[in-house]
Amino acid sequence: MITTRGLTKRFGSITAVDDLSLEVHEGDVYGFLGANGSGKTTTVRMLLGLVLATSGSAEVLGHAMPADWRTVLPQVGAMVEGPASYGQLSGRANLALFDASGPGGARGTRAGRVDDVLEQVGLGQVDRRPVQAYSLGMKQRLGLAAALLRGPRLLVLDEPTNGLDPQGIRHIRDLLLALNAAGTTIFLSSHLLAEVEQMCTRVGVLDRGRLVLQERLDVLQRPTGRVRLGTTDPAAVRALLDGAVEGQDGDRLLVRTTDPAELNQRLVRAGIPVLELAPERNTLEDVVLAATTTEPTADTTGGLR
């Protein structure tokens, strides 16, 4: 769906994106992670032909960008750096204008299409208020509605749940997952690790313009070969398992084992009360922080973007 080779963008002496080689497959929900200023937005803009690359190439939906924009862009829905609309017009009027601006939107079916996407993003009941009176969450939903208007094969979304309340986030996540199940590939850049962890099947991590990690999420989250063990009698566990205990925090122990079921059996046989027992997995946060070795600066302490 998206392939870039050696994609590089320099603004003057600053290299915003450096030798980037992305690989997004059809059907992926691809999570694109990176700190502030790591070049995420510049990458998205290059994929959409808004910013022209200094060197390297990008292919979207099998065609070169930006050269083949006429073929590619009608099949792409995008939300780049927050939604934007004409504030004095209503949401419906904005979508109608947007639809009329480009190719492939028959006038006769326009109102129906607009109603459909408004319904999809949960703005079906929206009135004739101008967009400037919308809340941030409503504007966000409207931006998403605009991205969905063409029934795209590929959705490129920048922080789609920004400004939404928990129910709204849930709604949008369910919507995106349903679209993905119906065959839409989703390229999602987000600073919310939890969101990426809940939705994405593949993850790419950008650090200062370079791609430092690109892998399936389930591979990243594979078990570490240790189990977390909660017990009321840690001393007895230590006595029983001897060298396999690799860490302790009060009643909680980290135990190295290849077979958690067998471990549980041994503990029970020895009469040791087990409160909980679960294989330890790498969290996305651990993986990302390990991959980005960025010294914490004022810019990045606020979280990953």
Binding site: L48, G49, L73, G82, A84, F98, S101
Partner: peptide
């Protein structure tokens, strides 16, 4: 300035 230019261009409008 309104941010609508990028959306027009990816709509796409040449």
């Amino acid at each position: 300035q309104q941010g609508t230019l990028r959306y027009l261009l990816v709509r796409p409008v040449g």
